[in-house]
Design a protein around this nucleic acid. Structure first.
Lengths: 213, 213, 213, 213
DNA sequence: CATGAATGAGGATTCATTCAT
DNA sequence: GATGAATGAATCCTCATTCAT
């Protein structure tokens, strides 16, 4: 499976140690408060470094934010590309995607928060690049091909393919986006276990939903 | 059907046109930039009033924000409660909920943006109250009852009811939350039409997904 | 004679009272320390206003500086244009110019200091605009015409006209530029009187210097 | 003639190439931006050395500035002292002084810029020391003596001696101070040639201006 | 000598909020 | 209701200077 380890590169020994501490602290602050609400002082003290170090390593608060985005989203999201290429089974493709989403959005809780804020920002180019990543990942195409083939062969019912893709993506990602609400409605005790069940439930509902009768 | 008219409150007999203009402008500003990123100056000039007027009508920037939230989310969301009570058919309940989500999140584009930001805010009590509204709306309970009944009667397959509810909600709401990405991947030409198709597609996938074979 | 009163306009009653106080204090601060050395805090307390008022009235420290320049140099310097037009006598032209320089550079001591710093700044466009003002004032042309005419008529010796103009300007303005040194070498007791003598001495030396023998 | 070679000091046997590079870069930076506007970083990168090296060689930014002043002005200016002592002819004294000013202010363009800024600084002790150098150079005394003698002998007209000295100094030095303006008014093509002509023109105007008729 | 990293004390600018009219 | 002017408390960022190596 894809390695999505959290470090910012290979040089986390002492070269750039404080740079990394800043990135960590910044991710947390930006996730919790957003770019506008984040305080450089808070990031500095969170990272245990002098405020000026932030400007030594990054151009500005916004530059730091961009770097955090890059580390947290862009860099990790691209990892999926070409990973579903080999699969021939629709259910397997779904599982790959589900695992990837979990990996991407659940390992680092900050990721979801930042992603939510980016979704709300009309000027965000993160959204643009995520869209590009999705397109280039081949998921929609692969999905479409498999569904279409299954529909031709009579294995699947006639469904709107685009809607199906969207339904799958929303079921998978939507959970992470809204989990703060869900967890208040149902109080999950064991989230990791819940997520594994969720993956199965999504595959189950989706496959049964499209399968011919 | 639920009345979700756009005015800022039914008790606003003539409590000031400028108060409303401020609320409109504030909703837009908060949606685009979030509470921290919003500028009182910008809200004032957006509303075409003097900045001091905002403090004449509202206690503070945060007070104004709370008021916007109340108008945009709380007030409208509560409208659903007791509306699905009468339904006996699962598909009809789904449709009610889908219509409600569309009404709530699509009519005013600001709603989604603010909602996204609230989801990202760990201190948000909007999330709390939305959770409460969902609980009190009876949707999960009704849903659970109907699914359980269907499973007992053999009409539906044995599925994890909680997961099913979540799958439905994410399919429905998830689209609005992520539509900025989707619209960049697929370029919808006619969104209202697309949303109507989407509702059907969700019901179709869900009902087929749970129906016994 | 030209009115070169110091106020920034006609509305110095209470409309823009603090704006004017800021301009006054800023002129002093910029004169003493230069743009880079000036402190916004010092300007604010010098003007007896809140620091934020500076940004209410001016775009930035640099914007304020430009405004000061405009008030102190550009606006006043343009006043000379067309003022020497009527003169037919070379000595009278000299006197006009001498009076103008005194008016411009001696009334407000800050003017010289700021002018000196602008002369030292390779990126200054004040220097550009002063050059333009000189050109458009007609002084060099008038001067040239009169000297040339005098040379043709035999009243004046054959001299390099351009050098003569420069000699005159440097004698007149150079004194103000270097007066801080001169006053340390000679300790003038009565400067206004000294300046009047200086004007006469310059005319005397110049006219005798060019007159035919 | 006076040795005004450009090296940064005769006692710099091999006291480090980087020290000199720093002084060069610092002179440029201080000339262009002034003490307050100068950036230590920029000086360091201009000199091609690490910023800390500056503090290895100099006590502080201001200490470096003082050193630059010493090299550029004080050290070179003192060279004139006692050089005009031998002259008996007024015109020869003028020429000596003109050559010295040209040497001092024209060889290194930074000199004029720094000098201009010092003239504008009310706390400058460079101005003080230049005044002292002028006094001690004997130029004013020599000048005065010669003019007075000429006036007694009937060779010169009765003029205000102090004004005459100032007129001469301003004609000579004033050109360098204001050359950035002059060059924008007239666009000199060949500055060295122009300066030689200027020297002659100054002597010509001055001598004719004081000579008895 | 030389360097990259670090720091504290500012310094410019912003911004929510209030006041006088 | 309505406004222009005013303010204090941040907040981002800079910069001279020092330190560890």
């Amino acid at each position: 499976m894809v390695d999505l380890s959290l470090d910012t590169g290979s040089d986390t020994r002492s070269r750039g140690a404080s740079r990394d501490k800043i990135l960590q602290a910044a991710a947390k602050e930006f996730a919790q408060r957003g770019l506008a609400g984040a305080r450089v002082d808070r990031i500095a003290s969170g990272a245990g470094v002098n405020k000026a170090m932030i400007y030594y390593h990054f151009s500005s608060k916004e530059g730091l934010y961009r770097e955090v985005i890059k580390e947290l989203i862009a860099r990790r999201a691209t990892a999926l590309s070409g990973d579903i290429a080999g699969e021939t089974d629709l259910a397997a493709v779904l599982r790959r995607a589900l695992d990837f989403h979990a990996e991407l959005l659940h390992r680092k809780p900050e990721t979801v928060q930042i992603y939510l804020r980016e979704l709300a920002d009309p000027k965000s180019d993160t959204v643009e690049s995520v869209a590009r990543i999705i397109r280039e990942s081949g998921l929609p195409d692969e999905f479409t091909k498999m569904l279409a083939a299954g529909m031709r062969s009579g294995a699947y019912r006639a469904v709107d393919v685009r809607q199906a893709v969207i339904s799958f993506i929303t079921m998978s990602i939507g959970y992470y986006l809204m989990s703060s609400v869900f967890s208040k409605v149902w109080q999950f005790t064991d989230e990791p276990a819940f997520i594994e069940e969720r993956k199965k439930a999504i595959i189950d509902l989706f496959m049964n939903g499209v399968k011919a009768r």
